[in-house]
Computed example of a mutant assay.
Amino acid sequence: MYTLNIDTQAFIKQHWQQKPLIIKQAFVDFEDPIAADELAGLACEEEISSRVVVTKGDDWDVVQGPFEDYDQFGEDNWQLLVQAVNHWYPASQPLVEAFRFLPDWRFDDLMVSFATPGGGVGPHIDNYDVFIIQGEGERRWKVGDKGQHKRRGGNENSPLVDDFEPIIDVVLQKGDVLYIPPGYPHCGETVTLAMSYSIGFRAPSQQELLTELADSLIDNNLGNKRFTSTDEPEAPGIISQTHQQGIMDLLVQLAQDPQAYQTMLGKLLSQNRFELDVCEDEEPLSNEDLIDAIEQGAIIQRIGGLKVLCLEQDSQSRLFINGDEYPLAQASEAVLQLFANNVSIMPEQARELVEQPALLELLTQLVNQGLYYLAEDEY
Rank of each mutant, 00 (worst) to 15 (best):
Q134I: 13
I199F: 02
S196A: 12
V177G: 03
I132N: 04
G154R: 02
V112K: 01
G120W: 05
E138D: 15
G154I: 09
Q206K: 12
F164Q: 00
L178E: 07
S196W: 02
K174N: 15
G137D: 14
I199L: 15
R202N: 07
K150H: 15
R152A: 13
P166I: 08
D109L: 02
G135H: 14
H149Y: 12
F201G: 05
P185W: 07
R202Q: 04
E165W: 08
V170E: 15
Q207R: 07
G200H: 00
T192K: 12
V171H: 09
L110Q: 09
Y179M: 05
P185E: 07
L193G: 03
I133W: 12
N157C: 00
F131C: 14
G153T: 02
G200W: 00
V170F: 09
E138R: 15
R139P: 06
D129A: 13
I180Y: 08
E189G: 00
F164V: 12
I199W: 02
H186T: 00
E165L: 11
G119S: 07
L172N: 12
S113M: 03
K142Q: 15
V177I: 07
S158K: 08
P182H: 07
M111N: 03
D126L: 04
V161E: 02
E189Q: 04
L172M: 14
S205Q: 01
S158H: 11
E189C: 08
D162C: 10
I125E: 09
P159R: 06
I199Q: 07
S196K: 07
G119D: 04
Q148M: 12
I180F: 09
H149Q: 12
G135N: 14
L160Y: 13
K142E: 14
T116V: 12
I133Y: 14
D145G: 10
G135L: 13
N127V: 05
Q206E: 11
E208L: 08
F164D: 00
T211L: 05
L110R: 05
G147V: 00
S205M: 01
Q207K: 01
W141K: 11
I167P: 00
E165K: 14
D176L: 12
M111V: 08
Y197S: 00
V177N: 06
I167K: 01
D163P: 00
D109S: 01
W141N: 10
P181N: 11
E208C: 03
C187H: 11
L172E: 09
V177A: 08
K146D: 12
E136Q: 15
S198T: 02
I167L: 05
Y128A: 13
D162R: 03
I125Q: 08
Y128M: 13
L172T: 04
G200A: 03
S158Q: 10
P117V: 11
W141P: 10
Q206H: 08
G135E: 11
I168A: 02
D176Q: 11
R140P: 06
I199C: 02
R139C: 07
R202T: 02
G118M: 03
I199G: 06
Y197D: 06
P117C: 14
E138K: 15
L172F: 09
I167Y: 05
R152D: 02
A194I: 11
H124L: 14
Y128I: 10
L178P: 04
Y197I: 10
S205Y: 02
D145W: 04
